[in-house]
Write a protein that binds this DNA or RNA. Structure first.
Length: 264
DNA sequence: TGACCCCTGGCC
DNA sequence: GGCCAGGGGTCA
């Protein structure tokens, strides 16, 4: 699934493929969740591709394209026209193209004036970005706050931390040896630094595993499970050999090791 | 805080 | 043939 590391990989691929190129045509073969006027982008040049949390942002000068990939969205460089699930195609004067593939149509695409991008409703309230220099134990503890709800619920909230998803949070909880259901206000003082480092380790792991010309989402539909904890209920913990369990927090599947991640 | 919705493919 | 998965919005 496209969580932060997958989005970051795509940002790099898209930037390399289209920086400096001029958009000559925008086609919408089958796109529903779309806001804005495609004509605004045509004949403008790509300055760069950026990312905030799970959002991709293409800077076309006066206008910007904002893209959230939902669960199955994926931008592909120079995709063939018979590729399944094509939603949007951007064609450039360089002869290259970008195609948005999205089987489940959970992605969103917006065209907005660049001046207003920073205040876009989807971006304005985003929280800490784990790849930014502000990703520290102190900032994380402050952003989460001394609240009663489960830690995982807060970390899933993009207004608290921008970019972490359900898979990442099972992995991070296990790596940091923190119970996902611990109330935020009861998180041990030394756990925040472990959470910060575990997040970086998880992101690095995915970045390393998914580099390539075209991104393939780890563990997606039938692929071998590449994760240490997520999706491994009933299997032994690689650290202590206890059996991973599966529960639900906020309606989302949550995996943990009962020995490495005790509630106390 | 939980239920439900968007949608589709893989799995039992 | 039904259930489940996931991001994220909305509604009670």
């Amino acid at each position: 699934m496209p969580e932060l590391p997958e989005v970051e990989i795509q940002r790099r691929l898209l930037d390399t493929a289209t920086r400096g190129a001029t958009l000559v045509k925008l086609e919408r073969p089958d796109l529903a969740r779309f806001e804005g006027d495609p004509a605004d982008l045509v004949s403008h040049r790509v300055v760069s591709w950026g990312r905030r949390g799970k959002y991709l942002m293409a800077d076309f000068g006066a206008w910007s394209l904002l893209s959230h990939l939902g669960m199955t969205g994926q931008w592909i460089v120079d995709a063939p026209t018979d590729r399944a699930h094509r939603r949007v195609v951007l064609r450039f004067d360089s002869g290259r193209s970008l195609t948005l593939i999205d089987p489940r149509r959970f992605g969103w695409t917006w065209i907005v004036a660049s001046q207003e991008l920073a205040n876009h409703p989807r971006l304005v309230s985003l929280g800490l970005d784990p790849l930014a220099h502000t990703w520290t134990a102190d900032n994380l503890r402050e952003a989460v706050g001394p609240r009663r709800p489960a830690l995982k619920n807060r970390l899933m909230d993009q207004k608290v931390v921008a970019g972490l998803g359900n898979i990442a949070l099972s992995e991070i909880g296990w790596r940091a040896r923190v119970h996902p259901h611990v109330p935020c206000r009861a998180v041990a003082p030394d756990a925040w630094q472990r959470l910060v480092e575990a997040t970086q380790q998880h992101i690095d792991y995915v970045l390393d595993a998914e580099g390539g010309d075209e991104i393939v989402y780890l563990g997606y539909e039938g692929a071998v499970n590449p994760f240490r904890c997520y999706g491994r209920a009933g299997e032994p913990c690689p650290r202590c050999k206890a059996t991973f369990t599966k529960g639900a927090i906020g309606g989302r599947a949550t995996y943990r090791c009962p020995t490495c991640q005790p509630l106390d």
